[in-house]
């Protein structure tokens, strides 16, 4: 006994991302503006000498420094050092953040007792604690990892918490009707329903964590991109310093892009425009 539905023979076409026809034009405009700014900058420094090149090196010099940097093993050592700390700190923050966020979001008791403190801590400028961390944990990796963790964990906790609160009660009812209880309810219903929120928190956390890593290296460190940057600035090698900043911008944006791609992959059912404060 089969029923042929009215639509049974049609295949569903998955919605594709709409490419607006004007978008290409705007991209070209952006490229044009950037090119114009670089050209004016080059002209002002190299040809008109309005600004001393020692303070503001021209774009060509920065590009040369950038290329030189990529050829230096010292740079790659610093890169690995920074990324390692970032990844360890972020991994810890993700595990702790998701678990704590789910628990606090799901338990009304915890939500009313713990959540206000989490919001308070979130809005506290934790960067101010950086010197303290370095004093206590030393100049090595530990202080950087701790700083990454501290900065990354709060957005992850708070977003996961918000997600857990927003889980549709009817999904929970469906779980209960079909015998999904306790840990299983958490694993099969609450966690997947919260995942898009968690990923949004992780995205924010990663950006803040990277700031923490660089800051830690800057304030007192023996390695990493922040340390290199501090060294370059101290030596008054402005082109190198700016090239390093550009590297950091690239890393930060790649991380954001990676996580938002991940979010689209892992949670395609979720329209990310619905997430408040997604960045």
């Amino acid at each position: 006994m089969t029923v042929t539905s009215a639509t049974g023979t049609n295949r569903i076409v998955r919605p594709r991302r709409v490419v607006r026809s004007g978008e290409g034009k705007w991209a070209w405009l952006l490229v044009g503006v950037v090119a114009a700014v670089l050209l004016i900058w080059e002209a002002a420094v190299s040809w008109l000498q309005l600004v001393p090149a020692a303070f503001l090196p021209p774009p060509t010099e920065i590009i040369a420094a950038f290329v030189r940097l990529l050829g230096e093993p010292e740079f790659w050592q610093a890169f690995v050092y920074s990324m390692q700390n970032l990844l360890i700190g972020l991994a810890l923050a993700i595990v702790v953040g998701v678990v704590v966020g789910l628990a606090v979001g799901w338990s009304p008791v915890l939500r009313f007792t713990v959540a206000p403190f989490l919001w308070l801590l979130y809005s506290t400028p934790k960067v101010a604690l950086a010197p303290l961390f370095i004093l206590i944990l030393g100049l090595g990796n530990e202080s950087k990892i701790a700083l990454v963790f501290l900065l990354a964990v709060f957005p992850i906790i708070l977003n996961t918490m918000e997600g857990a609160v927003a889980v549709s009660p009817s999904l929970v009812s469906a779980g209960r009707v079909f015998g999904v209880n306790g840990v299983y309810l958490g694993w099969k219903v609450i966690f997947p329903a919260t995942l898009p929120y968690s990923l949004s928190g992780i995205q924010r956390g990663a950006a803040l964590g990277f700031t923490g890593e660089v800051l830690g290296e800057f304030l007192g460190g023996t390695g990493g991109l922040g340390h290199l940057l501090e060294f370059a600035a101290y030596q008054f090698m402005m082109a190198e310093a700016i090239a390093l900043v550009i590297v950091m911008v690239i890393i930060a944006n790649l991380t954001l892009w990676l996580i938002s791609t991940l979010r689209r992959r892992l949670a395609p059912w979720y329209d990310d425009r619905k997430i408040v404060g997604a960045s």
Partner: peptide, 9 residues
């Protein structure tokens, strides 16, 4: 369920 309550994932 009246509102389907399907798991979107």
């Amino acid at each position: 369920f009246q509102d389907y309550a399907l798991l979107p994932w």
